[in-house]
C-alpha cells in the first residue's frame, strides 16, 4: 500500500444485477470495501459504509455465510439541485463465507463515522483438538 490514497479508491464498485438477486428497492447497490484480518482469538472485518448508521445496518450469519446489508438514505439538500456528481448514492451489500467456525453468540458489531467493525470470535475448543491414540 502506498502512502497516498490511490485514485481508484474514490470510485465505489457497483453491483451488477446479474451477480445477485434482483432488488425491489429502487436504489443503486454498492459493494463496500473491506479489510479482513485475523488474530489467534478473533477474526476482524472492517467495512466502509458511508451514510449508514446502526439503525440501517443488518448483519446476518446463516450457517457460515455472513451478510452485511446497509441502507443509505439519500439526503438531498432542500431546494438544491445536483449539478455535478462523481459518486452514486445507494445501499451497500456484501456476503462472505467464513472459513473458521465462529462463535455466533460472541459477534460484536460497532459502527462509527460510516465504518462498520465486526469482531468474530473463533470458536474455542473446536480450533484444534488433538486426539490421543491409546495403545491396547
Amino acid at each position: 500500500m502506498t502512502e497516498e490514497l490511490r485514485k481508484t479508491e474514490s470510485q465505489k464498485d457497483e453491483m451488477v444485477e446479474q451477480e445477485q438477486v434482483e432488488r425491489t428497492r429502487e436504489t443503486r447497490l454498492f459493494m463496500p470495501r473491506v479489510d479482513i484480518y485475523e488474530t489467534k482469538e478473533n477474526i476482524y472485518l472492517v467495512a466502509d459504509i458511508p451514510g449508514a448508521d446502526q439503525d440501517s445496518i443488518d448483519i446476518t450469519l446463516e450457517k457460515n455465510i455472513l451478510s452485511i446489508d446497509a441502507r443509505v438514505a439519500s439526503e438531498k439538500p432542500t431546494d438544491y439541485s445536483l449539478t455535478y456528481a462523481e459518486y452514486g448514492i445507494g445501499d451497500f451489500s456484501r456476503k462472505f463465507t467464513l472459513s473458521n467456525e465462529v462463535e455466533k453468540e460472541g459477534i460484536v458489531a460497532v459502527v462509527k463515522d460510516g465504518v462498520l467493525s465486526l469482531t468474530l470470535p473463533k470458536a474455542g475448543p473446536a480450533k484444534t483438538q488433538r486426539i490421543s491414540v491409546k495403545s491396547v
Partner: peptide
C-alpha cells in the same frame, strides 16, 4: 480523492 457531489 475524495469523490464529490455538488449541489447548487
Amino acid at each position: 480523492f475524495p469523490a464529490i457531489n455538488v449541489w447548487t
